[in-house]
Write a protein that binds this DNA or RNA. Sequence first.
DNA 1: AATGAATGAGCGTTCATTCAT
DNA 2: TATGAATGAACGCTCATTCAT
Lengths: 218, 218, 218, 218
Amino acid sequence: MKVQSGGSVASPTLGRQRKRTRILEAAVRVFGERGYFGARMRDVAQAAGVADGTLYLYFASKEDLLTAILEEYAQAFVERARRDCQDLADPRMQLRRVLERHLLSLEQNRALAAVFQIELRHSRRFLRRIAKGQVAQYLLLLQELVARGIQEGIFRPTVDPRVAARAIFGAVDELVTAWVLAHRPASLAAQLEPLLEVLLYGLCTEQPAHAHGRRGEP
Amino acid sequence: MKVQSGGSVASPTLGRQRKRTRILEAAVRVFGERGYFGARMRDVAQAAGVADGTLYLYFASKEDLLTAILEEYAQAFVERARRDCQDLADPRMQLRRVLERHLLSLEQNRALAAVFQIELRHSRRFLRRIAKGQVAQYLLLLQELVARGIQEGIFRPTVDPRVAARAIFGAVDELVTAWVLAHRPASLAAQLEPLLEVLLYGLCTEQPAHAHGRRGEP
Amino acid sequence: MKVQSGGSVASPTLGRQRKRTRILEAAVRVFGERGYFGARMRDVAQAAGVADGTLYLYFASKEDLLTAILEEYAQAFVERARRDCQDLADPRMQLRRVLERHLLSLEQNRALAAVFQIELRHSRRFLRRIAKGQVAQYLLLLQELVARGIQEGIFRPTVDPRVAARAIFGAVDELVTAWVLAHRPASLAAQLEPLLEVLLYGLCTEQPAHAHGRRGEP
Amino acid sequence: MKVQSGGSVASPTLGRQRKRTRILEAAVRVFGERGYFGARMRDVAQAAGVADGTLYLYFASKEDLLTAILEEYAQAFVERARRDCQDLADPRMQLRRVLERHLLSLEQNRALAAVFQIELRHSRRFLRRIAKGQVAQYLLLLQELVARGIQEGIFRPTVDPRVAARAIFGAVDELVTAWVLAHRPASLAAQLEPLLEVLLYGLCTEQPAHAHGRRGEP
DNA sequence: AATGAATGAGCGTTCATTCAT
DNA sequence: TATGAATGAACGCTCATTCAT
């Protein structure tokens, strides 16, 4: 009835970390499937193969468990996105790379995507926490990326980096949410190019006058 | 012990409609302030000035009440947006007008905005309902708008109207959510132009080659 | 499955009072039998013939229910004791009457006695609440009674009324507790006279010198 | 990872006894401060500087721990009281000495007093256990003391030794409880004389007729 | 139609106790 | 002998919903 904790446990801390991860992954699965409110702590415990009380040795409350999912996964994502950018010079490529990661990483773990797109947003308090934390970091990354592009003359100077960052985030976010909700979801990554098409070059065939002017110079 | 509702009731249906509306508006206020889960039916009843049980004469359940808010307000919005478009020929102006309405109408009623951006999205089931209903209509409107723009040669033919529609929606939606969450929100409508700047002309200073080529032809 | 609330309900308030009383009496029975901690709210609800939730329409919490028992019964007791005293002139008779009531009223309702002697004392917080409330009133009554007796020359002037009051209370209280705990309890009221014998005249055959002296004066 | 308990352990039994005592003293402190129900076994373990599980190597359960406190301290007290009496001839002095010990020993260890006056009384089962054990012994001691006093003609023959013993115990007990509950407690021992004043000579200035008569005879 | 008192299912959390190491 | 991570039973309370009046 008890699961052995791996062949060789180097240190109690290691075993502890492992169990924590097991619970966290179980929570992602259960919250992803039944929703945060639909899931009972007991469901998570069973999915993780531990007793009810054990959950509370690793997480202070149901809400803390949800928060931990956010922090565990989102932080890693933002950090990785930032590293990805460093390898590339062209801000257009940077943007492509970041959004590609965004789409791919969520496409790989649909339950996690469901938690991110749905469960982490069911209350103002949670939305605020996210908005001030990881999402703020992500927005900052995008904003800097856009600002750099403008400095380098690759992006149009009339663009407002803050609004652009939000627009980019909102656009990707909406695509992911639609994908999470779809019963037979199409490929998420496949939507990267059409999205970039709009974000990079916009809808219009012609550049606005002020941009034209600049471009026209020899 | 009860006060009759006015000396002459024109029609029972009319009075009924009025009370329904009163409840609905109360629900918007209460859900907006305390959140859907934080709000008790009793709170709504008190805010509407009716007894607990009365709510159930107009709405089948708490969830139905939330759904009714969606249908009551969102439908009107989409219809209006569609009518707005008919008066304008240029798809760029149409897009501007639609998004302007979007921002303005939510800026005017912050509680309603909170319900739309937060409360209506706390479960997969609800998100699906929205996605298939009013949002689908809205996306269709945007998609048609984009497609028409392409046909008319004003929007770039390489743009995918479906992805573009979602990107547009996602971008506005994100701006509104940020505004709802902000403690001291800046003007929402003021973000229209910077947003359009990106959506219509994109980030890049140069149009992509294929668009160039086509545009360059005599 | 539902119990009609009396033949004719004059006012909803009256019915409410009745139900409150029914719950209170049920609580006395259940707490008396199983103890406060051993009793579940559900037990009380069943004993009262109401649903779990109904308890909370009348009492804010389990603890509040216990508190209500104290206030409902103890206050009435102290008030009655005070009235009893007014009819009598001799402080010796007053004391006899008060203690008689004390013993008789608890002998009549053993469950209530159990709650008073045991359940209401299981935590420092509760003991304090009692000590500052009803018991304080009772002690005051006794203290005044003793002081009056001294003034009238019937009680010895060397007695400290405060200590005497506590001693009296403690002595009776101990008798009652022993009676509550006994499996085959002897009559409680029958112990009144032997108790008074000690309290009024003490253990010693001789009065102490100073009392003697004063008494000897013409 | 563990520190051996001293270089040379005289006997394992001795070390064991020591640890048992350490746990017991910790329990008195913790129960006294937080109350029996408010205290968790972990609190006791930490206060004693041992692991949770270790408690169960010395005491079978939480309740057993409480019981052990009772037996450890109360037995010693009663035995000592009995020895104290043997040194004195006058039952009045014996009573004074016993009650003085009672008050002094509890005044010296307030946490222990709290456990005795409050924690050991929170359930009928516990009260019974006490009543049949140490308190019974104490009552017996008092009862014998009174009976002896009567035999010797020092205490009034009309006094019922059983009731008197309970009255005496109840009176002292009440004083101690009040002292434990007080936020700024006055000296407990200082209340000995006023208490004896009442217990030995009663409230009344005159001895009852039957006592008088007997005393008056040559 | 309206009321609002009553219902009762449902769940997060605690903590005494166990037992593998 | 000692540890402390793991266990899991137990329960007060809330609140959407019903229904007698």
